[in-house]
Structures are given as structure tokens and as C-alpha cells.
């Protein structure tokens, strides 16, 4: 009757995610200037990475899956990079 229990790594990820959530909400109230945005997005990225690696089992997946997951991110990067380039360099 042990085979239905959740693996420890899942529980760990879950608790870790909730802890990060608490951390990010707390930090949002600490005045850090521009640092606030950086911190909230960094924590968001860590949380997303946790979900992807552990819940979505990306850490067990082979090269092809990683390529496609990476492709999505890469093209998102292109969109954000070239898209914001115009607005950041307006005179």
C-alpha cells in the first residue's frame, strides 16, 4: 500500500513553490526600487522552472522534447528582444 503515495520530490517541489510564493509576495512590499521587478520576475522564472522540470518531468525527457521546449522559449525571446528594441531605443 505504498504505491499511491506521492514521491518525495513532488511534495518537495510543491512546498518549495508555496514557499517561493510567500517569499515573492513578501519581497514585493519591501522597497527595492527597480529591484522589485527583477526579484518578482526572477522568482517567477524559478517557479516556472520548478514546474517544468519536476511536474512536467522535463528533467527526464530526451533531447527532442528539450529542443521543442527550448524552441518555444527561444522564439519568445526573439519576440520580446526585437519587439522591445524599437521601444527602448526611441528618441
Amino acid at each position: 500500500m505504498t504505491d499511491w503515495r506521492p514521491p518525495l520530490v513532488l511534495v518537495g517541489a510543491w512546498l518549495g513553490l508555496l514557499a517561493l510564493l510567500a517569499l515573492t509576495v513578501t519581497l514585493a512590499y519591501v522597497p527595492l526600487g527597480a529591484g522589485n521587478a527583477v526579484v518578482s520576475l526572477a522568482i517567477g522564472t524559478i517557479k516556472a522552472a520548478l514546474v517544468a522540470a519536476i511536474f512536467m518531468e522535463l528533467r527526464h525527457r530526451g533531447g527532442l522534447t528539450l529542443v521543442f521546449a527550448g524552441a518555444g522559449l527561444f522564439w519568445l525571446g526573439i519576440l520580446l528582444w526585437l519587439g522591445s528594441m524599437d521601444f527602448l531605443t526611441r528618441t
Partner: peptide, 10 residues
Amino acid sequence: GQSLVASLVF
């Protein structure tokens, strides 16, 4: 009317 930098890169 996009920025000149953007035009050059593109």
C-alpha cells in the same frame, strides 16, 4: 516611425 536603431538592425 520606429527607432533608427531598430531599422538598422532589421
